[in-house]
């Protein structure tokens, strides 16, 4: 089995060249908890929808995801 050489590098504390800002980090961690929960519910709900549409064979229900390649034009 091939193990990539990079796997042996220990995760070292890399300081960013940008100052991420203490307030921004704290907010990010707090907001991440809320948004993570919402995201989990959305994914769970989307799976239920897909399962239901699979059972009833409708196939017409849209996947609850968004096209990431779109441009607003």
């Amino acid at each position: 089995m091939m193990i990539p050489l990079e796997s042996f590098h220990l995760a070292e504390p890399v300081l960013a060249y940008l100052d991420p800002g203490t307030g921004s980090i704290i907010l990010q961690a707090v907001v991440g908890i809320v948004l993570g929960a919402v995201f989990a519910i959305r994914m769970f709900w989307s799976r239920i929808c897909m399962t239901v549409s699979g059972i009833f064979g409708k196939g017409g229900m849209e996947k609850d995801g968004e096209d990431e390649t779109e441009h607003s034009g």
């Binding site: 990010q28 991440g32 948004l35 995201f39 989990a40």
Partner: peptide, 8 residues
Amino acid sequence: SKFRLTAL
């Protein structure tokens, strides 16, 4: 976590 960062 990566999951929460993805959600953000």
